[in-house]
């Protein structure tokens, strides 16, 4: 089996090395996106995200990548978004009240309540609903201070609990957006990444989801 080529969007993320290593372990051949055309044309795209909401959006908008990511998600092309990557898809975030999100999913991002440890740093139980085909029950590694409370309409979703239920992941077709870090979630995260990569890069599977073949 040859490696699945996957394009990674350089979001200025702090742990890019971990993301690339995780994709390689899952059978991927990651390379960094060189521009919007790369993101538009790739069979599979990963949007990692660690950092500030406003800074990430400003960087993605100035490079033209924001629109390319939004188009992929709206048209259901294979895309994996991690942590801040999930939050960017929403309409707004309490982290940066004056900045518009990508608006591909109608959700708002809010800060965790005051009575829990923030940032949420560690392993939390993830429970997918019946419609999820990538995410399975298990423990995932989270590192976040903000979260989405309500699952968006039209998406399968998985939830976790940290001072109340929050959205751990959403998926629709070959689009998977995780609040946790698959690349740091041990064997469970590796299996999840592999399932998504195989669906994203296998023509038959991707075609049935409206995605493109590799």
């Amino acid at each position: 089996m040859s490696a699945f080529e996957v394009v990674v969007v350089p979001t200025g993320t702090a742990n890019l090395a971990s993301v690339l290593a995780g994709l390689r372990r899952a059978g991927g051949a990651p390379r960094l996106a060189e521009g919007p055309r790369d993101v538009d044309r790739a069979a599979a795209v990963v949007v990692p995200g660690v950092g500030s909401y406003a800074a990430a959006l400003e960087s993605l908008r100035s490079s033209g990548l924001a629109e390319a990511i939004r188009d992929r998600v709206l048209s259901g092309r294979p895309t994996l978004l991690v942590c801040l990557g999930l939050q960017l898809l929403g309409e707004s975030s309490e982290e940066s009240p004056c900045v518009d999100g990508l608006g591909a999913v109608s959700v708002a991002v809010e800060r965790f309540a005051d009575d829990v440890v923030v940032p949420q740093l560690g392993w939390n139980r993830v429970e997918p609903d019946e419609a999820c085909r990538f995410v399975r029950p298990g423990h995932a590694y989270f590192a976040n201070s903000f979260r989405i409370v309500h699952s968006p309409e039209g998406w399968a979703s998985a939830t976790s609990v940290h001072g109340g239920s929050f959205v751990a992941a959403i998926e629709r077709g070959a689009v998977l957006a995780c609040q946790f870090h698959p690349e740091l979630s041990g064997a469970w995260g590796l299996d999840l990444t592999r399932r998504w990569l195989e669906a994203a890069c296998t023509p038959a599977k991707a075609a049935s989801d409206g995605g493109r073949s590799c």
Binding site: A14, N15, A17, S18, A21, R25, Y141, L184, G186, G189
Partner: peptide, 24 residues
Amino acid sequence: SIPLTVGGGVRSVDDARRLLEAGA
């Protein structure tokens, strides 16, 4: 495939960046 924290002799943002780029 789990998180890695690295410390020891970090004196600047550049030191931190080098550790992160290497895989911390």
